[in-house]
Amino acid sequence: MRHVPARRHPGQRAGPRCPRTGTVTLEFHDIHHAYGDLPVLRGIGLSVAPGEIVCLLGASGCGKTTLLRLAAGLEPLQAGRIELGGQVMAKPGREVPPERRGVGFVFQDYALFPHLSVAENVAFGLRFASRAERAPRVSEALALVGLDTYRDAYPHMLSGGQQQRVALARALAPRPAVLLLDEAFASLDARLREQVRDDTLHVLQNAGIATLLVTHDAEEAMFMGDRIALMREGRILQLGPPEALYFGPTDRYVATFLGEVNRLPSRVRGGQATTAIGALPAAGQPEGAAVEVLVRPEGLQIGTAAAHQAEVEACRMLGATTLVHLALPDGAGGVLRLHARLPAGRRLSRGERVTVAIDPERAFVFPPEAP
């Protein structure tokens, strides 16, 4: 099992302050943006504290990469204000050039120059520094990402993970106040992606600078982020620590985006949403209203002595957990099919009868999804 670094509170410094800029906060104020008649960002407000990693999470087209490009100065700001350390970096009609913002950017494809060595690629990010500064800065950045022995290698000689670390070193070499990463792990295969994410998290914590990371992968956002800003159609639906979004989603979309859920139809009676496997408090839902109970797979408790009987249709070990497929009557003449996740090692046989109950900490009540 991989080591997961201890999570910091938002804004808590995980390493030394940025040598050049000190403690700097990135702030977005009421950002609106459109491409022609198509609105892309609709009133975004967000801050990233020094030493904090904030993940912009959402489906393709929700506006997260556009927000990153506006922060980097790659697109002119149409409405709102972007500040860095209290200094205005962008507002309509006034843009600080990208090279003067103190912002590092890691692109999805890394954008390494194939004809330049690793050291020369990293030095390219220092083209505005004096010649005397470049060599020690390159060595410092390569040591930070663990590639100091590869300085004379070329990109084609490196693995995908090593190329990603070169791109990260190039972004960190100028000692930026803010680091922006756009789907930086998307091109790696699953196993390598886990290792590179782990390595990158340690590097970012040691760098101690404000970091904004774009991803469409909920697991990645929960692993990397001190806070997650879940976006949909140009708005932030919920902002907070990963555990707040996972265990306390304020919106059906948030609940389903952060992980798999079982869907149980219900109706509110006496303040409770009753389902075929138990009832939950339905605070805020009107009496008699049709609702849907969403239960995470690990929120289904499997036992042998309760009223709710289900049949095991399949049981598969998936490493750290075991996935169980269940079928049980829905109380209306139909069949409910549910997924449960159990600790690794527990084994159930196909056709076995078990009992099912709901863990209320991992279940949520929302109005039915609109057609």
Rank of each mutant, 00 (worst) to 15 (best):
H3T: 13
P5E: 07
A6Y: 00
A6V: 12
R7P: 01
R8N: 10
Q12M: 10
Q12N: 05
Q12V: 13
R20C: 02
H29D: 12
H29P: 00
I31P: 08
L38G: 00
G51F: 06
G51Q: 04
L57I: 08
A59M: 03
A59W: 03
S60A: 04
L67Y: 03
G73I: 06
G73T: 04
G86M: 12
E95P: 00
E99N: 11
R100Q: 15
G104R: 04
D109L: 00
R134Q: 15
R137M: 05
L147E: 09
D148A: 15
A153C: 15
P155N: 10
V166H: 12
A171T: 11
P174T: 14
L188Y: 03
E194H: 09
E194C: 03
D199P: 00
G208S: 12
G208M: 01
T211D: 04
V214A: 07
T215W: 06
D217S: 10
F223E: 02
D226V: 02
R227N: 06
L237A: 10
Q238P: 01
G248A: 14
T250E: 15
T250H: 13
R252N: 01
G259S: 08
R263G: 00
G270K: 04
T275G: 13
P281Q: 10
A282W: 05
A289S: 11
P297Y: 05
P297C: 07
L300Y: 01
L300N: 08
Q301H: 11
T304W: 12
A306Y: 04
E313F: 00
L318R: 11
G319A: 11
T322F: 05
L328T: 09
G333A: 12
G334Q: 05
L336G: 09
A340G: 08
E361N: 13
F364H: 15
P367E: 07
P371Y: 08
